[in-house]
Structure formats: structure tokens, C-alpha cells
Design a protein around this nucleic acid. Structure first.
Length: 274
DNA sequence: CGTTCAACCTGGGCGC
DNA sequence: TGCGCCCAGGTTGAAC
């Protein structure tokens, strides 16, 4: 997602609008009118990612230090540089100066996403080290062991905790544990060093591969690229969404269970319980 | 500390 | 066709 819109860096914001964005509970801060006012005529310095958030860095403009626009897409949010699928689910439109500049649209069907403008301290409070562990693309076995070695939680539930490691979602937790050969119900404290190394390695690998394949698009209303194309990583899902199908490794039937109110998919035969 | 539940929302799919 | 239910790549706070 970040890569898809990285090209807006250097552009000057002509206007920002927030149609149909909920203000309460606080999913947009400050109020839309204030936010639009603060962003107008500012320049995009860079587009960053912090865990699952897109963070648009606004070049300093002398006044306040509010220069981090953090967008959290949650379940159905898309960042688009083309016409959105429907006009009624558009939550933000950012227009740029210069002829032929395509506007950036935040489209969010379910409307669970958030849009907030932060100063340095605010950004840190929202997605600093207190809220986010190391990024999944670079996490190490030591990182995981240090944070989870004494935990009684089920490993799959723990991997979804962004304070442990940032960026793993429900699909990727399943795929990471399948490739690590570990049962998602395993209690963290029972895992050995070698298993944490395996999980960390597969986390880096699965996430990097998913990025390379432009994400997972399931059905036609999930993730899309900035130019509204489907990703391809769903074709490589080995267990996610495959309840009842045969495990690609051993042929056993893939199971679906529920952990912490989320679906978990795994192979009961080749994923070992620690 | 860890788990469960409800809430925030919309919409597709299914059984009846 | 309609209705009620379940489900969905996420996060948070309250209750136990």
C-alpha cells in the first residue's frame, strides 16, 4: 500500500475533503474542517509505514509540529490513486497542485479505518515503541523470545499483538505458523529457541513475499493496489481460507478453529503442538 | 496476566 | 424474495 502511493512525495496539497467520515467515536482527528485547513497548501515530504498504518509526512511549515497524517485502513480501507469502487465509501480525498495530478483517495467500505494528524509525540503515542514491537519484516528470534518466552498465551494470538511484532494480521499469522510447522494453539512459554527462530524467519519471509505479490485479495472487496488491481498472494495461501482442503505438505484436512474471536486455519498433522 | 465479549460498520453468502 | 444469521485481512475497553 505504501509503495503504491509513494509517488505523492514532493506534491503540494491543494485541498483535502472528508466526505462521510465519522467523527464520533473518534476516527478522525482533529475535526474534518480543522484537518483540511491544516493540510491545505502543505507539501508531502514522504510516505512512511508504521506497522499497519500509512503515515504521510507533511513538510514542516513553521507553525505547529502537526505533520504526521496517520491512516489506519483496518479491515476494508484502501489508498487509491484511481477512481474508487463506489463514491459513497470515500472517506478522504486529497488533491494536489499541478495539472494531471491524480488525487489520493482513502476508500473504506466498513468505515472502521481512522485518519489522524499528529505531532511527533502524538505519533509516538499512537504507534511508537510502546504500541508497536519490531516490524515483522525485520523481526528476530531473540525479539520474539524476549517478549513471549514467559507468556502463557497461544502463539497465534500473541503474533497478532502489535506490541509484540508490528504488521502481522490474521492471514499472515496462519501462513507463518504453517510454514514454521507449529500448532497455533501452542503456549508461547513452551516454545524453544529454535522454534522462535523459525517463526521469526518465516515472518520475515512471508511478509516480504506478500509485499512482492502485492498483498492478498480475497473476493473482490478486499485489498487492492493503489491502481485498484487485485494482489496475488492469496494464490500462495497454504492454509488461510482453506478449511477442509488438503494440506499441501501432508494431505491431511485443514482445520478451522476460533481463537480470540478470530478464525485460525492450520494443518493438524504437520503443525506440531509445543 | 489472560480470556471473552461487545462495539465500531457494511455487505456478501447461506439456509429456510 | 425476504429474513435472519454467520462471516470478513482490525482494534479497543470493560468485565471476569
Amino acid at each position: 500500500m505504501r509503495r503504491g502511493i509513494a509517488g505523492i512525495a514532493g506534491l503540494r496539497i491543494e485541498a483535502v475533503a472528508f466526505p462521510r467520515s465519522r467523527v464520533r467515536p473518534i476516527s478522525i482527528l482533529p475535526r474534518p474542517a480543522t484537518l483540511a485547513e491544516r493540510l491545505r497548501d502543505r507539501t508531502v515530504a514522504e510516505v512512511h509505514r508504521r506497522g499497519k498504518r500509512i503515515v504521510i509526512e507533511i513538510a514542516p511549515a513553521g507553525d505547529d509540529g502537526q505533520r504526521w497524517l496517520a491512516i489506519e485502513p483496518r479491515m476494508t480501507g484502501l489508498m487509491l490513486l484511481v477512481e474508487p469502487p463506489t463514491p459513497e465509501h470515500v472517506r478522504m480525498v486529497m488533491e494536489f497542485m499541478g495539472r494531471g495530478r491524480k488525487p489520493l483517495t482513502f476508500w473504506d467500505r466498513r468505515g472502521l479505518g481512522t485518519i489522524r494528524l499528529f505531532d511527533d509525540a502524538g505519533l509516538d503515542g499512537a504507534c511508537g515503541p510502546h504500541k508497536h514491537g519490531p516490524d515483522g519484516l525485520v523481526v528476530t528470534g531473540d525479539d520474539l523470545m524476549k517478549r513471549l518466552g514467559a507468556s502463557r498465551r497461544a502463539v497465534k494470538v500473541a503474533l497478532l499483538d502489535q506490541r509484540v511484532v508490528a504488521g502481522i494480521g490474521n492471514i499472515y499469522a496462519a501462513e507463518i505458523l504453517f510454514r514454521s510447522g507449529i500448532d497455533p494453539r501452542s503456549r508461547c512459554r513452551r516454545l524453544k529457541r529454535a522454534q522462535w527462530e523459525a517463526i521469526a524467519q518465516q515472518t520475515r519471509r512471508v511478509l516480504a513475499e506478500a509485499v512482492r505479490h502485492e498483498g492478498s485479495s480475497i473476493g473482490d472487496e478486499t485489498y487492492r493496489t493503489a491502481d485498484n488491481r487485485a494482489g496475488r498472494f492469496q494464490r500462495r495461501h497454504r492454509v488461510y481460507g482453506r478449511e477442509g482442503e488438503r494440506c499441501p505438505r501432508c494431505g491431511a484436512a485443514i482445520l478451522r478453529i476460533v481463537q480470540a474471536q478470530r478464525a485460525t486455519f492450520f494443518c493438524p498433522a504437520c503443525q506440531r503442538r509445543a
